[in-house]
Amino acid sequence: MSHSSTSHLIEMANQIALNLSHGREQLECISEIAKHIQRFWAPSMRLQLIALVALDNPQIHQRVNIAVTQLSDYSAPT
């Protein structure tokens, strides 16, 4: 995966988090981030994001890190 498309994916995820942060409690916000990504992102993109989160990429917004665990493609690490 190219560097620029990684950063682009992270940018998009962070943007979603930023825009869904206001007027909502933390848990509600995380749930909405997850729902948005589930609804609008292709599985390949969701899997890429999950993989990046698994690598502990520091660029990723904290709430995105938690939101990906709510995606249907997510499987908890063993």
Binding site: S2, S4, S5, L9, F40, W41, A42, P43, M45
Partner: peptide, 18 residues
Amino acid sequence: HEPGLRIPNMFDSAINGH
């Protein structure tokens, strides 16, 4: 039943070789 790629996602995916 899963969403597909939007145009900008298609470009990213093309550059990634998929």
